[in-house]
Design a protein around this nucleic acid. Sequence first.
DNA 1: CGCCCTTTTGACGGTCATCAAAGGGCGTGG
DNA 2: CCACGCCCTTTGATGACCGTCAAAAGGGCG
Lengths: 262, 262
Amino acid sequence: MIHVNDGAGFGRQGRAMFSSGSIPQQARSTPDSRSLFDRFAATIFQDALTDVVRARFRALARNFDVSAGNAALSSVEHDRICYLASGATKLVAQASNGREQVIAFHFAGELISIPARSAHDYALCALKDCELVVFSADEFLALANREPGLAGPVLERALAALARCREQSIALGRKTAQERVASFLVTIAGRIGRAEAGGCVIDLPMSRRDIGDSLGLTIETVSRQFGELRDRGLLETSGRSIVRLPDPAGLDALAGHLTHAA
Amino acid sequence: MIHVNDGAGFGRQGRAMFSSGSIPQQARSTPDSRSLFDRFAATIFQDALTDVVRARFRALARNFDVSAGNAALSSVEHDRICYLASGATKLVAQASNGREQVIAFHFAGELISIPARSAHDYALCALKDCELVVFSADEFLALANREPGLAGPVLERALAALARCREQSIALGRKTAQERVASFLVTIAGRIGRAEAGGCVIDLPMSRRDIGDSLGLTIETVSRQFGELRDRGLLETSGRSIVRLPDPAGLDALAGHLTHAA
DNA sequence: CGCCCTTTTGACGGTCATCAAAGGGCGTGG
DNA sequence: CCACGCCCTTTGATGACCGTCAAAAGGGCG
């Protein structure tokens, strides 16, 4: 139903994402869903689980269907780890005064780490209809740690998520509005863009507000930067969610990345 | 020599940090240092390595002494994992135009992940004289993944680093200069502060510029905010590096954290 | 003790947030 | 299938916060 992660993209940089995990509250639990768990085991562990270990993981897993726009997990007491089988989500942090920061976006096949509520409050929200497999982080990690060969794939994804969060920190700390928007477009194109004749097409599952909240900008500034990029011939939009990048390299040049000449 | 991580602090929130890893260039390699590796094995694996596995890790490890102000690892080709036995470091990312973003600070006993050069360039720099144990991330992870019980502690630290990076994203994306500085002080106090009569004392190993570069602010703005906090009686400084927080709770109230009443 | 570099303090300007309103997409209902 | 209407998005005007430029003060090392 959701066509994310189905494109070749052009940036070729993203692997599975790791964000943060917590306990579902307003989502309805589905008793079991063989194929959902299977997809988790196949994607994360390459189907290399023994029957015994597989059964142990299944005992820890809880499946959830969350429809677009709803919170899947919010303000949880303990850390969660969550496999996103289908759909797209955002991890949102709340600070005082109702300010929100989108920490990360996730797409089908990714593993997400959701931190327990502490200084800030985290919520995982569905951007599209989602199927989730949710674990307690403690239980998941204890089990993965006990058997050889299981923690590696998870660790790899956690480090990839860390690397991505750091890239985000650079954008938030040191980049102009235009560079942030360009970075966002290039990055997201690498994750869910489809290469097409002379460019790349993205079907954005998130709103302008989500984009702004992820870049530390307002919705108006994002819109203005889109307009600017449009004027420069680097961006074409069709409806609210379809974006075409005629010249990804030109866009990348505006993203504030280090020139590889240095 | 460096007295980090020796205080009880008051925030009690930090565990080992995970940042990023890469190959030393300007650091001089020391052939071997039994006690250095021992401290690594003791801290990260609680000395639970078998002799065989221990020997394998030692074969992968390279020890480095780096003096304050020098780069330990910079612009590396492959991801690194690095144990900081003593001292203090910063992980710096470079964007275009010479802009720098300090991604994280690290203190003795922490594990650091250093990403290979890509869209941005990363460097691990010593704030104080440091002793490091450096691994290739690929080799380290492959080895840790092969044996049961080894990847867990590493994964735990990676997730803690991810959580901290996310907290940083909130500050960078949505907080005012004052909130960022207050957050910084509260967080750093929790990591290296010493509780004293009516407050908390921190010996900052980093300069104002480092602080600014980590908060997405200029050195002048940091200094101004320090002045403001001083005027409010929330901060006392003694020399360049000694900071006293007479009222950590009052400072935390300015940090933009979510009130736990909600 | 003296120099150099970090930090502090001040004045000004730019970028982006805020406030406001018009335009367009997309779902709903007729 | 078309039309209505809500809400998301776009566009505009104004202003605040923080960056930039500049210079003085203070700390720490030789």
